[in-house]
Design a protein around this nucleic acid. Structure first.
Lengths: 248, 248
DNA sequence: CGCCAATGGACTGATTCTGGTCCATTGGAC
DNA sequence: GTCCAATGGACCAGAATCAGTCCATTGGCG
């Protein structure tokens, strides 16, 4: 009514970015995905105990019944196992499968056009997070936490490398103090995680990445925001290039 | 079991960023919020027609029944009105209320600790978006789209300024080509929108912002990514400072 | 004028999710 | 040895949501 001609100039149609899904299709499938990704991201290692059902249900904002349904599926898939009684709980039994190129291609197809979307999004989020983290005055605990994550990553055996890598980068996200930012970074890592897990790890790449990780930590701890941003960008672009290389 | 001592060093507790709510409490309330914010953001002006119920329901991934419940609420609140028949639809009748300082404080209290979270998140997202947009090779249509948004903003009457401002910044987000990024920016704008709407508009600020908007567009169109990032950061920090000033 | 397509309006049965309650099991504390 | 608190296990009534169907209204087109 006001400016009908404008409609033509719009990228897709009114509200393109606003009118996206209010919720994902299914609460219990989403819960499965979250838990599984938390495990794949290395937040819970083999043998770790997940939070109690009652707590986890509150965190995920779903009913305990729905959560239990999800846990039952994970149990049947052999990813977790439950023990009753005090000091019982649900324990992680999942182990990372070996990287596999056909898995990579399949995972890439699942993502489809979302791949570039996710890579761009990740770049923006993580470079921004590094910069923000470098600009904050960190407490000694926070500094120690970051260095611990880096040390864990440096010492990680090959089969735990990617998980430690995720925990390292999530630690940086947490240091920004923005829950929204940390949440989005975690979510985007999840989206890309299957792909990253499927990339064979080459010594030369790991060594290169290791230098970059150290440089990022150094930049954050010395509050050199510009360097933190730049090195993070290089680091992520290297991974993205590797990924595109294996796919193209 | 693996490293119990580590738990102490964690920022909050395992999975802090991962185990966030799977879904917001309520589909129809969420739908109301989305539509209302789309209107407040200026995506639909007074008199505009919203997408047809059947389309909108698909976009929001909710059933048409739930959407209709939301629209009924908006109708009762006097924000929209519906007309049947071909060339009918649901039309926006909402008008922006005048800015009001007590509204500002109330809105700020609603956000609470989320305020700094949202400001940080917005800064990361939007500076990143400007940089990415500047690094892309834009089509003529896209360049024209961006310039159109800027021109609209420059010409905007006071009561439509904030809406045009949102549309301008959302346009930049769309130019990144990352739907996730554009979606997050829209969402964060929504979270802050009530606050921004409540800030009285001062001529000097508008003039300053206008220069920055022009500089951002110039930087994007000349593919000067570094400048795009820097000016966007200055621009957002100015708004944030203004906001903190009114609140502190 | 009559048809038709696009739209909002309304109903219904099935499905999912919730919130609550109670039970079963376990290992430590006393 | 007994008790107890924390945990998983199970069930249910009701609410929310969905998918599908059909109706009512409207304005343009032939």
């Amino acid at each position: 009514m006001d400016e009908p001609a404008e409609q033509d100039a719009r990228i897709d149609w009114p509200g393109g970015a606003i009118f996206r899904p209010v919720r994902t299709g299914n609460a219990f499938e989403e819960a499965i995905e979250r838990i599984l990704q938390a495990i794949k991201l290395g937040i819970f290692a083999h043998g770790d105990r997940l939070p109690a059902e009652r707590d986890l249900a509150v965190r995920l904002n779903i009913s305990r019944d729905t959560l239990r349904e999800a846990l039952r599926s994970l149990q049947q898939a052999g990813c977790v196992e439950s023990r009753r009684g005090r000091y019982g709980g649900t324990f992680v039994t999942y182990r990372l499968p070996a990287p596999n190129l056909s898995d990579l291609r399949r995972a890439a197809e699942d993502l489809g056009a979302e791949l570039e979307d996710a890579l761009t999004y990740r770049l923006v989020l993580e470079t921004g997070a590094s910069e923000r983290a470098a600009k904050r005055d960190l407490t000694d605990d926070q500094r120690a936490y970051l260095e611990r994550r880096l040390a864990d990553l440096e010492a990680a055996p090959a089969d735990a490398y990617r998980q430690c890598d995720s925990r390292f980068h999530l630690a940086i996200a947490e240091l920004t103090g923005s829950n929204s930012l940390a949440g989005s970074i975690a979510e985007t890592r999840m989206r890309l995680n299957d792909l990253l897990n499927a990339i064979p790890m080459i010594g030369r790449n790991i060594e290169h990445a290791s230098h970059q990780h150290q440089a990022i930590v150094r930049a954050i701890l010395t509050q050199d925001a510009e360097a933190a941003r730049r090195v993070t960008e290089e680091h992520l672009e290297a991974t993205a290039a590797l990924l595109r290389g294996f796919l193209g």
